[in-house]
């Protein structure tokens, strides 16, 4: 009788022990998994913060460099060109009538160069973008390209224009500038359509071209090469200012849409 009780007890105890053992294993593995997930999440967060800080300093360095280049172009090169024009004028006064026409042509060319330098200086100056806002800066840039005449840029605005955080507007402007340059350099397009839509505190910018289009996956595959790095940089900038970016590309051209919600931004 005693043996029977002992055996029954042992069998039941082992079954109970097995249940506890399984529960222990499952709980232990679950906790390990949770810890691992948390650790990975923290790692991703740290990496994102690090990337953001790097991008921020890159943008600051770029802004500072462009500011210096812009000032240099405006103050030094502009002044030098003004001096050249004065000298040409003096030469014209002294020269005979045979070379008069050449001198006039040269003067016109130098004045044109001076004008171009002034435009470049303005378009790269962060201060100019901050002072005039996103829409005017894009308009200025588009006018400059339209004047060259090879590609036509069509600009449209919907809603009431607003001025948001200048730091974010500067990044948005650089992105639009990059998109225009990409279209001109790679798409073989004839027209670029840029539309800015202001609805409440949301700004949607679409940049569309009628070029040959591209395969985003193929380009991003070559990210280590120059082709993909531009797109990657655009995506990074978008992430940095918390703006969504979508690419649609095919035989009819490429459309890139940027959507920035300024609702929670300090502006």
């Amino acid at each position: 009788m005693q043996t029977e009780v002992n055996v029954v007890f042992l069998v039941l105890a082992s079954a109970l022990f097995a249940v506890l053992m399984v529960a222990f294993v499952v709980i232990f593995l679950y906790i390990t998994q949770k810890r691992s997930f948390k650790y990975s999440e923290n790692l991703i967060k740290i990496k994102q913060e690090y990337d953001s800080a790097i991008l921020n300093s890159q943008i600051e360095v770029q802004a500072q460099t462009l500011k210096e280049v812009s000032e240099e172009l405006h103050d030094n090169v502009g002044q030098l060109l003004s001096s050249v024009i004065i000298h040409i004028k003096v030469l014209g006064d002294k020269g005979n009538s045979e070379i008069q026409n050449h001198i006039e042509d040269t003067k016109a060319l130098v004045m044109d160069v001076k004008e171009q330098v002034r435009h470049i200086s303005r378009s790269i100056s962060p201060q100019h973008i901050e002072d005039f806002g996103l829409w005017d800066s894009i308009t200025y840039q588009a006018d400059r390209i339209n004047r060259i005449g090879t590609i036509k840029i069509d600009l449209k605005i919907e809603g009431h224009q607003k001025h948001f955080n200048p730091r974010i507007e500067l990044v948005l402007f650089r992105m639009v500038q990059e998109l225009m340059n990409n279209a001109i350099k790679h798409s073989e397009c004839e027209n670029i359509y840029i539309k800015l839509v202001y609805i409440n505190n949301k700004l949607t910018i679409s940049v569309k071209d009628d070029g040959k289009g591209f395969d985003k996956t193929e380009i991003l595959k070559n990210r280590q090469f120059k082709d993909g790095s531009g797109l990657h940089a655009l995506e990074n900038k978008a992430k940095y200012i918390n703006c969504s970016i979508t690419f649609t590309s095919g035989g009819n051209g490429t459309r890139i849409t940027l959507i920035k919600d300024f609702e929670n931004e300090n502006y």
Partner: peptide, 9 residues
């Protein structure tokens, strides 16, 4: 684990 541990005895 559950099967073989429970049925051991």
């Amino acid at each position: 684990l559950f099967y073989f541990m429970s049925n051991f005895f």
